[in-house]
Design a protein around this nucleic acid. Structure first.
Lengths: 222, 222
DNA sequence: AAAATCATTTAGACAAATCTAAAAAAATAT
DNA sequence: ATATTTTTTTAGATTTGTCTAAATGATTTT
């Protein structure tokens, strides 16, 4: 079954808004998609008749098993293109999202599988988000927030939990990217800010607001 | 100015139907696009108000200078993606067109310029068609139809003038692709068929219908 | 040159995705 | 428990791109 660009955007947004087991509201979705609540209601009816949604009037909604599968396919396409743009075309990580929003709607299973192969079956995109495989399986890093790691134990940044240009800007300014090794030098309990540093770089401070979005890879080796 | 997918498809089709200086008819365009003539008329009005067309009722039409520029941009995107699919993702040349039809509508100037750079600024796509550069300039091979070359002078196939699956199938069966060196061994005047062969391969026959679509690169060296 | 045919346009309709304004249901406050 | 506010849905309109059927312009035949 093929879906319109608009349907795909709704499905993807619902997937992101519903965590595990959560319900989504009409207003939340309309805010996410920058449309009017009335438009959302219309689309919900449509997605319900296509059996992608569990939805009863006034009760909130979430994706059905089938809807979830469709969402994972869209996210797979989005993140593979992000990886391609970043890795092959050398886009910076703030730039990839917008272009991938368009590329994700190109529907050719063969294209995506060949792209996946060409890229070497990457499991994480440039923001550290997992890329579903062709069966919808997603890998997970064992990860821990930088606010929670012990001081003076260098670890690798593996995920950024917010992709707003503002946050990406501040991270880039401090030379923090996926793969960067950081260690915490001091925690200031007054405002929960952190003094951190790279292996041979200068120390600098992350506010709590920034730090809570920075996640580190748990390393199982000693 | 940005155009809808539908507008872009009309512009591209008009570009292909009008040769140099030619006019296009409503029926020809409706046949090309698999729509009804009435739908074409509707779109012509729209493209005219956007100044992409030279069009007076009942008189036929062609692209304006601006329309031509837009068309070349679309064709650039299409052919760069075809090259990418063929060269990097190893699609066969029959498969590239359909996927490129979708990818060509992704509008990001930066994406296309970076892709162009990544691919090494190719000047011809997998069918031997020229890829416009970012200013709309297109390279041309000096080329000659295989029906017109003298016998026993090996030359390189540089262009295939028809991309129907049927023709591509027959060419693939005979191991003819862009870059293949062929020489004509004999011309049969009865039906204008040609006996041709590769450097060390067996001889085989091309019917006139096939041969007239096969073009060879004129080599300026002796 | 009138008749017949063919090409093109107009008129009116439809589906998809959106909107505004108003109504209805649910949640919250008094 | 009733009133108020918030959320959600309905009703009806709009835009885009398409369609069919009918009308009109252009071309060809006799």
């Amino acid at each position: 079954m093929l879906y319109t660009v608009s349907e795909e955007n709704y499905i993807k947004a619902i997937f992101h808004l519903q965590g595990d087991e959560g319900m989504v509201t009409t207003n939340a979705l309309s805010a996410e998609l920058q449309t009017r609540p009335a438009s959302v209601t219309d689309m919900l009816k449509k997605l319900k008749t296509k059996k992608l949604l569990v939805y009863e009037k006034y009760q909130g909604f979430r994706l059905s098993a089938e809807g979830r599968k469709v969402a994972l396919g869209i996210i797979r396409r989005h993140r593979l293109w992000e990886f391609f743009l970043s890795e092959k075309l050398r886009f910076s990580w703030e730039e990839v999202h917008e272009v991938a929003e368009q590329l994700e709607h190109v529907t050719s299973v063969k294209l995506i599988d060949k792209l996946d192969e060409y890229l070497g079956y990457p499991r994480f995109d440039p923001h550290g988000d997992p890329i579903p495989d062709r069966n919808g399986k997603i890998a997970t890093h064992e990860r821990i927030c930088i606010t929670a790691i012990p001081p003076d134990h260098p670890m690798e940044v593996c995920h950024v939990g917010n992709q707003s240009p503002e946050l990406l800007d501040i991270l880039r300014h401090n030379h923090i990217a996926i793969g960067t090794y950081l260690s915490v030098r001091k925690k200031f309990s007054f405002d929960n800010s952190l003094e951190v540093c790279t292996a041979n770089g200068p120390a600098f401070v992350l506010s709590e607001a920034v730090a809570k979005h920075v996640w580190m890879k748990k390393i199982d080796t000693i």
